[in-house]
Amino acid sequence: MAMRKRTLKLLTFLVLFIFLTSFFLNYSHTGVPTTWFPKQMVLELSANFRKLIKFQPCTCASCLSQHGVSAWFDQRFNQTMQPLMNAHNALMPQDTYQWWLRLQRERKPRNLSDIVQELFSIVPGDVDPVLEKRVVGCRRCAVVGNSGNLRESFYGAEIDSHDFVLRMNKAPTLGFEADVGSKTTHHLVYPESFRELGENVSMVLVPFKSTDLQWVISATTTGTITHTYVPVPPKIKVKQDKILIYHPAFIKYVFDNWLQGHGRYPSTGILSVIFSMHVCDEVDLYGFGADSKGNWHHYWENNPSAGAFRKTGVHDADFESNVTAALAAINKIRIFKGR
């Protein structure tokens, strides 16, 4: 509520400023004030406001979506892409749909229209696809990966200071608060990586197959789906109004635009990063990459030389790492690599 009041005050100030500026400029150029008609006023204000927004899309010192900073970024970042699926944007182009079906090679997928209709009779079907991102303001995202480089980093308080804190897959916080924080606003999972979440945490399901959408329906109602390619939780305690669906078309956008076809499909990590770039104005990454000794492991593991989660086979971890490094190099994101 406080944020909305501040936003309204800022918009009111901007409108008044533009009006007075336009008035005095008009007066100085003609010597006498020109008659202003309502339609003319609206057009003038609209044009000036669009110019203002074009050059300053947020109130941060540096706005992530700002174009003209890097040709490499501008070629890849498509602001019209919607990260979340809802009842109004669920329809996908045929090529996107066929690509998505091949990700985990489903043999007999159920009709998507039927699944979507049932799904959005259970979970919110009118969710804002960009999470109510405002035109003005400065929304800060912390994307918290699962790397062992978080150990003894003491990033916890810094992570929790962000507006949105995104985590993924198994990622525990209990017992690791000093290093990884305790706040979570959105947790990205798929059925095979699900863990129970805090009461006010939004679950963002990343569907790699149509069965994943069916699992959401089942896990919140009948509990009939207990196995995909591995056992999955038959029931979950997440409130239905806290369930969001990552759009399959957005997965393909990440694969095509950002990964340029590397790997079979994107990891949850890079999907979280690009997702946050579309809903926030500033993005900080924690817990990505190897630890200071070059080892790849999860921060909650006791086998620091494991490296299993880097060599997944279906993801190109090196290329994904290069993408985040390139984004950091042009100051679109910041990467915190541990202390």
Rank of each mutant, 00 (worst) to 15 (best):
V123D: 00
H227P: 06
F23Q: 00
V143P: 05
W99M: 05
M3D: 14
Y253G: 11
T34A: 06
E320K: 09
V165C: 12
D281P: 01
Q98T: 11
H262V: 06
P57K: 08
N89H: 15
M3Q: 09
L259R: 00
T96C: 08
P233N: 02
V123P: 00
A142S: 10
G307R: 03
S272C: 04
R102H: 11
T211Y: 09
P129Q: 00
A90K: 08
R139G: 06
Q98P: 06
I115M: 10
H297K: 04
C58S: 14
A47F: 11
F23V: 07
G31V: 10
G261A: 03
A171V: 03
S272D: 00
Q214R: 12
D256G: 04
W300C: 10
V283T: 02
D95H: 12
V230G: 01
P304S: 01
I122F: 02
F37H: 13
A328M: 06
L25M: 09
L174C: 08
N257W: 06
P231W: 04
L52P: 04
V143M: 03
T12K: 04
I274G: 10
T268N: 13
K332Q: 08
V273W: 13
M81R: 15
R105Q: 12
I245V: 13
H297T: 12
L11H: 14
P266D: 02
F255N: 03
L52A: 00
K5N: 12
T185W: 05
N331W: 12
M3F: 15
T96K: 05
P172R: 04
I251V: 15
I159Y: 13
I53Y: 05
N303G: 11
T30W: 13
R167K: 10
F250T: 11
D316M: 00
I217P: 10
A142L: 05
P172K: 08
K133A: 04
Y97W: 15
D74R: 01
D291A: 02
Y286S: 06
M203P: 13
A61I: 15
E158M: 09
A90W: 13
P129W: 03
A178H: 15
I330C: 14
I243G: 07
N78M: 01
K337S: 12
N295C: 15
L11M: 14
S70H: 02
G175Y: 07
L101S: 02
T222M: 05
N149H: 03
I225A: 00
R140K: 03
W258G: 09
V69E: 01
F37C: 07
A328Q: 10
G148S: 12
K108F: 09
F154K: 10
P109Q: 00
K5T: 13
V238K: 01
K239R: 05
D281Q: 00
L131T: 07
G175V: 07
Q260H: 08
